[in-house]
Amino acid sequence: MEIVQIVGIGLVSTVILLILRRQKPEIAVLAGTAAGAVIFMIIAAKLSAVADLLEEYAARADISPMYFTAVLKITGIAYIAEFGAEICRDAGEGAIAAKIEMAGKVIIIALAVPIITSLLDLVLKIMP
């Protein structure tokens, strides 16, 4: 079961980070990044299986693939932005974390624009 493995890795790296943070804070930040990467790699296989499944259901429900891939892209950007922002916040750089999150939001809005326009066109068409 991956969850036991993940919690084990999380606890071990937390203890290691406690030791490292007192001696060498800069290496502790990098160790935190490594722990995050390792934990994500464990669930990467399951995540891609779920993404493929959802894509197949979207195709079967004849939703145009543009919408679903946009949703998937937005999720991915949100995850990466959150990954970076939390690491910066752990290192004590709240300002940089806020900037990363703002940039992530702007990119997500930019991705969502075509969906919003097609939604508005639909609404205008429906209105008498």
């Binding site: 990098l30 490594a34 390792v38 790699m41 995540l47 891609s48 993404a51 999720t75 991915g76 950007i77």
Partner: peptide
């Protein structure tokens, strides 16, 4: 440590790119 981490983060971001298209 930076060199090690940069390689791992590159692998991580490539995985995320392939998963989330």
């Amino acid at each position: 440590v930076l060199l090690i981490i940069v390689r791992e983060i590159a692998v991580l971001f490539d995985t995320v790119k392939t998963i989330f298209r």
